[in-house]
Amino acid sequence: MGVPEQQAAVQAATQPAADDIVVDAQDVHYSIGGREIFSGLTLRARRGRITAVMGPSGTGKTTLLRLITAQAYPDSGRVSVWGRDVSELRSREIFAMRTRMGMLFQNGALLTDIDVFENVAFPLREHTTLPEPLIRDIVLTKLHAVGLRGAAELMPAELSGGMARRVALARAIVMDPELLIYDEPFVGLDPIALGVILRLIQKMNEALGLTSIVVSHDVHELETIADDSYLISEGRVVASGTPQELGEGGSPIVRQFMSGSPDGPVPFHYPAPDYVTELLAGEGAP
């Protein structure tokens, strides 16, 4: 069975109800500066599940998040969030949509001129008129959930990478979002911090009933937490299913990615002229 047939079979077997789909990308084409990033990408994130989006570096995983959060729009195709096509939303509606989602950035993206407490309190202060004692209680609850209640008075520059990401996670959930998006949450973390983040993602999803989209290339970490997985390569989904199904995957590119092999359809070398020809062409040159 070829990749498209396999994909269709998986999708047919797991066809969700329409209101169960939070994010729905259909046949998305998107280019930046003449370079095609997506050429017919189709994927879905379902309510209450952790959806992993994997792929080699440079396949546009972060770009996909930009499309979902309406920071960019597809050239053709459709990206819908909660049933609304994001390219048809007005700026006021985009802001309203974003208040229902939280996003964890690769580097945390904490505001560096205010302390940890104020960072977590930031969305509450901007979007609510809650009294100060209530804001304090909510912020401390969220910081406690990520184990950093004691770090409330530290400045972002005083945090380690793992701590910054946990604070960013507390900030992302402070408005009790329905959709939580993680952009490469495991990059550059030591094993302990990585384990903590993994556990938090799982815990958040279970305890708060969130829908999560995790974009990453860390296959083994995602295998342990993801309910659904998509593997993106060359602008489209090349495999989808549970992480186990992907692990047993059919096509060579899936096998290469899941096993981390340097040999396979994804080349080690960036496209270049023939090695020997290029070396010999340099002979006689000054």
Partner: peptide, 11 residues
């Protein structure tokens, strides 16, 4: 450091 983008995502 994506702080401006983070603000936009926080509406």
């Amino acid at each position: 450091t994506d702080q401006l983008t983070a603000m936009q995502i926080m509406a």
